[in-house]
């Protein structure tokens, strides 16, 4: 009987260890998606022009979207970015279209992708299964330059907000403490960059 009790206890301990270590993967999918950039749809061109429209349509896949304004196709190589339904997407050569989640001196962008994994069942007639897992990675852009760089981990965030002690202080804490902050406040990572973008002043 005690073995069953111990087995249950061991299960609990190992699951606790797993959850304690997994929260360290804080960077993935932890930026909030609440940035509203205005209701009017808009296309920003590389030459600085901006087209505001109430009749915009976006077709194609996320990596290669096609923007249509008033029924006319816009050449995507001339497009810097576009705003649709309050969400701004930057056009990049390397990452295609990326969604803005933080706006300011430093813009943070999210790129969603589908990770395909395959597994094969065992038995006399093995079958191959394909699983699609939705994942994201993040990029930052400084001063609306159009140049983006990866934001992969805590150190990248510290480097990005260097020069703003308040923002650095928010992120330069132990991984577990950071994970707890994110758990308490879903906007925590957004707020680190918002403090930086707010001339390094507290948000409230």
């Amino acid at each position: 009987m005690y073995k069953h009790l111990f087995s249950g206890l061991i299960l609990g301990i190992f699951m606790f260890l797993a959850s304690a270590s997994k929260v360290n993967n804080f960077i993935l999918q932890n930026f909030a998606h609440d940035l509203n950039e205005g209701s009017t749809d808009r296309v920003e061109m590389n030459d600085g022009r901006s087209i505001e429209t109430s009749n915009m349509r976006v077709t194609g896949v996320a990596n290669r979207p096609q923007v249509w304004v008033d029924g006319e196709k816009v050449s995507m190589k001339d497009v810097k970015g576009f705003r649709k339904n309050g969400v701004y997407y930057l056009q990049t050569k390397k990452h295609g279209s990326v969604r803005r989640v933080v706006q300011g001196t430093i813009n943070v962008y999210e790129k969603g992708y589908v990770d395909k994994t395959t597994s094969t069942s065992q038995g006399p007639n093995p079958m191959r299964f394909e699983h699609n897992v939705e994942k994201s990675y993040y990029l930052i852009e400084r001063n609306n330059s159009g140049e983006v760089e990866f934001l992969m981990n805590k150190n990248d965030i510290i480097t990005a907000v260097q020069g703003c002690p308040l923002a650095v202080q928010m992120v330069d804490i132990k991984n577990n403490a950071l994970a707890k902050q994110i758990k308490k406040n879903k906007r925590y990572l957004n707020e680190i960059f918002e403090v930086y973008n707010n001339d390094c002043k507290p948000l409230r």
Binding site: K22, V23, F26, Q29, T117, K135
Partner: peptide, 11 residues
């Protein structure tokens, strides 16, 4: 994977 637990799931 479903976002119920913190972290990102992977098969």
């Amino acid at each position: 994977m479903k976002g119920v637990i913190q972290g990102h799931g992977d098969f």
